[in-house]
């Protein structure tokens, strides 16, 4: 054997597909289309998608767990907001409920709540939420050493090289975002929404809440406001988007532009072989607030892609049909590799 030929590497483990379930129908659709894990929340501010018409009560969660388990999928409950002063018992009770219902893991951001869960339910699997803002292996290992977390979701701010270093230096499984709405700020470190509306992901489980949104037709334009603040003004040719604060058009020294970023979606399909090779454990799809059609499309496409990648990573090619299907459900119909690839670096 030629010494220059590298020994075959042990095949990297297939990555798990983690899909959003805002509602019971979305859960069933995600499971039916091949999600390994589904994640969801209770109907209150204990999770970061606390929107009207979304989420689960005990009965629907019990049924959802049964459905998922029968088909071999796991259910993760997001308790990923920060317990606010005076309401600690509510979060504590949510942890107890999740444990009693037999969920497969809870996704938590708050260190105090992780401490409670680890102590009270030592057999309950703990995942560190992206809202925990752990951007280095040392931060992740802190949560591992103190609470025995088994998986951490990386904030959407690291490059591929940085993410790779994190993966190689922690015993904790790493989950990364693969697709969906793109967070421009570090998760868990953004108070823009509460500055304008009084409610933020950290405090109330939602960014730019719907009740603070106002649409107003003015001569030649449609205006979107959040908490009374003008976020954007759309002409006839524009495609008006939801007034998420960091996607607004503002004025700096007379220039009107998107000072943070154009509205785009994250899509990392083309990075899959690299993510798999570096040992990423799971790919997360954003969008508990999105429709069952979104969940169906995105789960089907990503299942196929992950299967292709697991079978033969070196021959992996992004199929045009996938990109087309995803483009149809992306915000702004534009996709980007986000921070993984940094054109803005």
């Amino acid at each position: 054997m030629n010494a220059a030929v590298p020994l075959p590497q042990p095949a990297a483990r297939p990555m798990k597909l983690v899909c959003p379930a805002g509602t019971p129908p979305a859960l069933r659709i995600a499971v039916d289309n091949g999600a390994d894990d589904v994640y969801l929340g209770f109907k209150d501010e204990t999770n970061a998608r606390n929107f009207a018409g979304l989420n689960f009560d005990d009965k629907s969660l019990r049924e959802g767990i049964d459905y998922a388990h029968r088909k071999g999928a796991q259910v993760l409950v997001a308790l990923n907001t920060y317990p606010q002063p005076g309401t600690w018992r509510k979060w504590q009770a949510a942890v107890d409920r999740a444990a009693a219902l037999g969920v497969d893991a809870i996704i938590v951001a708050d260190a105090g709540l992780l401490a409670y869960a680890a102590k009270t339910h030592p057999r309950l699997r703990l995942h560190l939420s992206v809202q925990g803002s752990a951007t280095s292996h040392e931060a992740i290992n802190f949560y591992h050493e103190h609470f025995g977390i088994r998986r951490a979701v990386l904030p959407r701010v690291l490059s591929v090289e940085q993410a790779e270093k994190v993966v190689s230096r922690t015993p904790v499984e790493i989950e990364v975002f693969g697709f969906g709405s793109l967070s421009i700020m570090v998760e868990g470190r953004c108070a823009l929404s509460s500055y304008a509306t009084g409610e933020s992901p950290n405090t109330h489980g939602g960014c730019s809440p719907a009740k603070a949104v106002r649409w107003q037709q003015v001569p030649n334009a449609l205006e979107s406001r959040l908490g009374g603040i003008l976020i954007d003004r759309f002409g006839e040719k524009d495609n008006p988007g939801y007034p998420t604060l960091c996607r607004g058009r503002f004025v700096v020294n007379g220039d009107t532009y998107y000072p943070f970023e154009e509205p785009t979606s994250l899509n990392t399909l083309e990075l899959l072989p690299r993510l798999q090779a570096m040992g990423v454990a799971a790919i997360k799809i954003e969008g508990r607030q999105r429709s069952p059609v979104y969940v169906e499309t995105v789960t089907r496409v990503w299942r196929e892609a992950l299967d292709d990648c697991a079978r033969s990573p070196e021959r992996f090619r992004v199929r045009p049909a996938w990109q087309e299907a995803l483009a149809g459900i992306s915000e702004g119909r534009q996709c980007t590799l986000g921070a993984y690839h940094r054109p803005w670096k």
Partner: peptide, 18 residues
């Protein structure tokens, strides 16, 4: 209020962060 991996002052100046 917020922190990002991106630099918005550089973006305003049409410069990359590095």
């Amino acid at each position: 209020l917020a922190v990002s991996a991106r630099c918005f002052t550089a973006r305003y100046n049409n410069l990359t962060k590095d």
